[in-house]
Design a protein around this nucleic acid. Sequence first.
DNA 1: CTCAGTTTGTTCTCACGTTCACAAACTCCT
DNA 2: AGGAGTTTGTGAACGTGAGAACAAACTGAG
Lengths: 263, 263
Amino acid sequence: MTPSRSTRNGTPHDDVPGTSTPKTPDRGIPEATVARLPVYLRALIALSERGIDTCSSEGLASAAGVNSAKLRKDLSYLGSYGTRGVGYDVEYLRYQIAREIGVTQDWPVIIVGIGNLGHALARYSGFTSRGFRIVALLDSDPARHGERLEGLEIRGYDELEELVARHDIAIGVIATPADAAQLVCDRLVAAGVTSILNFAPTVLTVPDGVDVRKVDLSIELQILAYHEQRKALALGDGVVVDGMEPVDVGSVGTDGRAKAVGA
Amino acid sequence: MTPSRSTRNGTPHDDVPGTSTPKTPDRGIPEATVARLPVYLRALIALSERGIDTCSSEGLASAAGVNSAKLRKDLSYLGSYGTRGVGYDVEYLRYQIAREIGVTQDWPVIIVGIGNLGHALARYSGFTSRGFRIVALLDSDPARHGERLEGLEIRGYDELEELVARHDIAIGVIATPADAAQLVCDRLVAAGVTSILNFAPTVLTVPDGVDVRKVDLSIELQILAYHEQRKALALGDGVVVDGMEPVDVGSVGTDGRAKAVGA
DNA sequence: CTCAGTTTGTTCTCACGTTCACAAACTCCT
DNA sequence: AGGAGTTTGTGAACGTGAGAACAAACTGAG
């Protein structure tokens, strides 16, 4: 049903007109769009599971939490997969986005650091159900080696290189404490991993060509705290501005207690 | 009363003219800067713990993984806290950033959904050590009620409203399955929570005035997969996809490193 | 076939974020 | 004291992203 044989030529300079080159939308998808494609994909899967086979940009946009103009523009980077006057075919668009992201087949993933978080990640069904397959779990603690988790045995760092090579792993997840993260990162990269998802609260340094994305839970909370503080201040709480003394952070406990929104 | 109790989707925009809310003419810090302030704070804490009491924008920037111009511009939104020709006083700047973010005192936090992820979050020391204190754990499963975790007892949803009110909780963390998230969100908001950190893989709809940040683990992996796929194609086809050099990702044994910022 | 209605894809404009470059301000040395 | 060397803070240029608006393209009825 799907043509799916689209030649992925990334035409460096502009094209050869007249020939049967289909619109190759494969070049330069903006990063902001790339970050939203998985959201669209998830929304399409939800629609699909509810038996809906066609949707408008308006409907898909609201399911994804964006406005329709943005959605249409995002999709236009992939190509013209909709039909004017009709909308989008859910299954077809779902496949196209999955193909563009690269999750039509499973990526093998290694998780390093099976503490609280790593343990939860290994068990997280969202990974395995969406284009990823966890194939190796590593921890530095020898006491945990051999322990089984989701059908996998926890192994030691000494097997890192072999496991990455054997399973041809390109994506690694780091869930170690902060002080071990850079070391683990270096070994992963040296072994051939070129994409890293970092949960450790530290900045990783990697060579060119390696992608790092970080997920920092306390940073997310701090961003919320900033806005929360502003809300509290805006609601007429006493202005709590500048204490000019360079006091140490721990000693300022009681004063700034804010919040308590109306009602 | 709480202003604007509409059920519209909470868009990032919040300046609605006509209401009594002053348009916050004072210190509008750009959102991109706000997201980086916690990173700077963490870097400053690390420097402080190593006994370093002064740093240049260059040094702090490299510790935070950004370039120095961006760091200086970010800090300039807070005020002039540096000294030309010298640099920044680590302790002083640390305090100023902490105050700006609002983490000079602890924020009480509730976690709803103590599955794999919620369990890990409750035990995550990064929360408690950086301006947040977990004061309540909720789960829908009665079998888990009464179980103790980090000195807290897991409770049922029926105590949600009372706990939020008693501890004056403004920030909630949702770690439930996707299908329960919106319901939990609604109850949290109704109880008075105005900032939500959502780990459930679903789009939350909240009234105006409520902030939601989402952390979606599988989305992060999918973004990595997209870039990974492009790297593989670029290498395999020998095609220079625009914006990306055909970098030799295999050359990793060398000492030459670079920051992976905006690669 | 033609016309009215609907929805996409694209263009244009504006706002935001990043980077550059340099004056201002500070320290240190002579 | 004065000049050389540093480093911050900021104005300006540049690139990216968001939203509005509209022409193009499709459906369906008469």
